[in-house]
């Protein structure tokens, strides 16, 4: 996958005027898609962690309550 948007570093440096100057997929559809994927992954991880922890704690509490007769 060729993601370098210039022919050479010289060309990239010439474009380095503080606005674009070399950023992989900058301001293009690709960068938006990547951002959406990263945000989705982050949220999905949080949801997984929440559900996984809740399930784990329920299991532990049931075991302990049975052991202690509570």
């Amino acid at each position: 996958m060729d993601t370098f948007p210039y022919e050479s570093w010289e060309e990239a440096l010439a474009d380095a005027d503080g606005s674009t100057g070399y950023y992989t997929w900058a301001n293009g559809t690709g960068s938006v898609v990547l951002a959406i994927l990263a945000i989705a992954l982050s949220i999905a991880w949080m949801v997984w962690l929440t559900r996984n922890e809740a399930k784990h704690l329920e299991h532990c509490a049931a075991r302990l309550n049975e052991k202690w007769g509570l």
Binding site: L13, A16, T20, G21, Y22, Y23, T24, A26, S31
Partner: peptide, 9 residues
């Protein structure tokens, strides 16, 4: 996704 938030020369 803006150029300000990546490897910008």
């Amino acid at each position: 996704w803006d150029a300000s938030m990546g490897p910008n020369l």
